[in-house]
Amino acid sequence: MQGVVKVNSALNMRSGPGSNYGVIGTLRNNDKVEIIKEVDGAYEIRFNGKVGYASKSYITIVN
Rank of each mutant, 00 (worst) to 15 (best):
I24V: 11
G16M: 04
V7Y: 07
R14D: 03
S15T: 09
F47I: 07
N29S: 07
I24T: 06
N20V: 07
V5H: 01
K6G: 05
I61P: 09
V39W: 10
K37T: 10
N29K: 07
S15D: 11
A42G: 06
L11E: 05
K50I: 14
T26W: 09
Y53T: 01
N29Y: 09
G3P: 01
E34R: 06
E38D: 06
R46A: 08
N48V: 04
I61V: 12
N29C: 11
G22M: 14
K37L: 07
V33N: 00
N20P: 05
I45S: 00
F47K: 03
K56A: 09
G25H: 09
V4K: 06
K37A: 13
N63S: 13
N29E: 06
R14K: 06
I45F: 05
K6V: 11
N30M: 10
G25N: 06
Y58K: 07
E34A: 08
G22Q: 15
S9M: 11
I24C: 06
V39S: 05
N30I: 02
K50D: 06
E44G: 03
G18F: 04
G25S: 09
A10S: 14
V33Y: 01
E38W: 04
T26P: 04
V39Y: 10
I24R: 02
D31Y: 05
G25V: 09
V39K: 06
R14F: 14
G22C: 14
K37W: 06
N30D: 10
V7S: 13
G3R: 02
G49D: 08
N20K: 12
N8D: 13
Y21P: 03
S19R: 13
E34N: 06
G41R: 05
G3S: 02
G52D: 01
G52C: 04
S19V: 12
V5G: 04
V62G: 07
S55G: 10
S15G: 08
P17I: 08
G25W: 08
S57E: 15
S15L: 08
S19I: 13
V33H: 01
E44L: 15
S55Y: 07
Q2Y: 15
G18N: 12
F47N: 02
R14E: 03
I61D: 03
G3T: 02
N30R: 08
N20E: 13
S55P: 15
T26H: 09
N8E: 13
N8M: 11
V62M: 11
S15E: 10
V39F: 09
N63L: 12
S9R: 14
I35F: 02
D40L: 11
N20F: 10
R46L: 12
Y53C: 03
N8H: 13
L11C: 15
I24P: 02
M13V: 15
G3Q: 02
Y53V: 02
Q2L: 14
A10R: 14
D31F: 04
V51I: 13
E44M: 15
D40R: 10
L27S: 01
V51R: 09
N48C: 11
G52F: 04
G22W: 10
A10T: 14
L11K: 10
L11A: 11
N29L: 08
G25C: 15
I59P: 00
V23I: 13
V5I: 07
G49I: 02
N48Y: 06
N30Q: 08
S57N: 13
D40G: 13
R28N: 11
I35P: 00
